[in-house]
Amino acid sequence: MVSVGILLFPEFQMLNLSTTTVFEFANLEMPQPFYRVDLVSEKGGLVKSSMGFAIDTVPFGLRPYDTLLVAGDNDVLEASPGMLAYLQQAMLKSRRVTSACTGSFHLAAAGLLEGRKATTHWYHARAFRQAYPNVRLEEDRIFTVDGPLWTSAGMTACLDLALALVENDLGVEVAREVARKLVIYHRRAGGQSQFSALLEIDPKSDRVQTALAYARQHLQEELSVEQLAEVAHLSPRQFSRLFRSETGQTPAKAIERLRIEAARLMLESGDHAIDIIARETGFGDPERMRRAFLRAFGQPPQMMRRALQLQA
């Protein structure tokens, strides 16, 4: 059985406890429970959360953990000397040491992230860079993996991190089934931007949200207004008018942003040829994708790829 310790401290962010449900549902997929999850703290007992109520914990020195997950908080609180010493010991005893949200500040304070890549909540990225200049902060990532150290971005990104841990242990099918039962998308790739195009488009009604979700899952298709209107159960004229009133842009422009986001992710996370990326994301041909990248980023995909290679 894989032991998971979730390290809490006063004023920890409550959303981080949602990771326990990912491990719970992974257990339900197996013939026998695969994970044992403990909530741990420096002294054990009740630990006050960011919402004001307390959660019961056990002292963190009782047993070692295969996987340790450090919670984050809302205000980047300073870790105690005892907590930093425990993290340094955990690095020697645990297979994986992970953090959610601003928990990466505690890993960095313990010296675990020196020279390594990490991420954190975008809101605190500048403060992280100033405090820990030797950490290779990738502030536009959902989560990062650098050997035994895993870090996630803020808030719901902890779910992506937990699903990635399950996938690492039990395979992609188990992780996908857990995501389905939690009624969330199968985990976002670690390299995906924290700033989703869907969040920026910000549709209000269920009909427009449904059409955009369908579009993101079918980017290889033509995705005409008529096709999206049918998904939204509206006439093309009604759909176009509703879409523009909710998002301030045309359906065609929004679909292009979704395609650019998908193409950029493929560009950053693999060695796919440009023409394959263009085909897989629905641009059809490299020239059409090049023009879209110039509008969005001011540079073509090839130049972005070279910059990424030089950075690596």
Rank of each mutant, 00 (worst) to 15 (best):
G147A: 07
I255Q: 06
G248T: 14
Q302H: 02
F34Y: 12
G282D: 01
S235C: 08
Y214D: 07
T144L: 08
R126H: 10
P251L: 12
F283V: 02
L77V: 08
M14N: 06
R306Y: 06
F105M: 02
R295L: 14
F293Q: 05
A125R: 01
R36H: 14
E280W: 08
L84S: 10
L163C: 01
V166C: 03
I276C: 03
G298N: 02
G190S: 09
S205P: 01
E29V: 11
P59G: 05
A197C: 10
G72A: 03
H272D: 13
C158V: 10
A296S: 12
G111S: 10
L265G: 07
L161D: 04
L170N: 04
G103V: 04
N16S: 13
R126M: 09
R305G: 00
I6F: 12
V174Y: 02
L265Q: 06
A213K: 14
L242P: 05
Q194K: 09
N27I: 01
A215Q: 05
I142D: 02
A252T: 14
R36V: 07
S193H: 03
P31A: 10
S245F: 15
S193M: 04
Q194I: 08
R95Y: 09
T250M: 13
P64R: 13
M83D: 01
T19A: 13
L223K: 00
T102Q: 03
L159H: 07
E138W: 07
A125Y: 00
Q13E: 11
W122H: 05
L310M: 02
S152L: 01
L170S: 03
A197D: 00
F53N: 11
T19R: 09
E230R: 10
M266G: 02
E29C: 15
Q299L: 10
M304E: 00
Y86R: 15
V4A: 12
L137K: 11
L212M: 04
E42C: 07
I201K: 07
L7I: 10
G103A: 05
L7P: 05
R136F: 05
P59H: 04
P10K: 11
G191S: 11
S99D: 03
E114K: 15
K48Q: 13
A296T: 10
F195G: 03
V231D: 04
A273H: 06
G248I: 14
T57D: 07
Y132C: 04
Q194S: 04
T102M: 06
G115T: 13
E78L: 06
V40G: 00
K117Q: 08
T247D: 15
A312H: 11
R180Q: 06
F239N: 08
P33G: 04
S80F: 00
M304N: 00
R264C: 03
E200K: 13
M51L: 15
A118E: 05
P300D: 11
G111W: 14
I6G: 12
R264L: 10
L62D: 11
I55E: 01
R279C: 06
V70F: 02
A278T: 00
R257E: 14
R241E: 15
A252N: 14
E200M: 11
E222H: 09
R207K: 12
N134M: 00
E167S: 03
V183P: 05
R257Q: 15
I184Q: 10
G5P: 09
M30G: 10
G248Q: 13
A153Y: 13
M289G: 01
H233N: 09
V58Y: 06
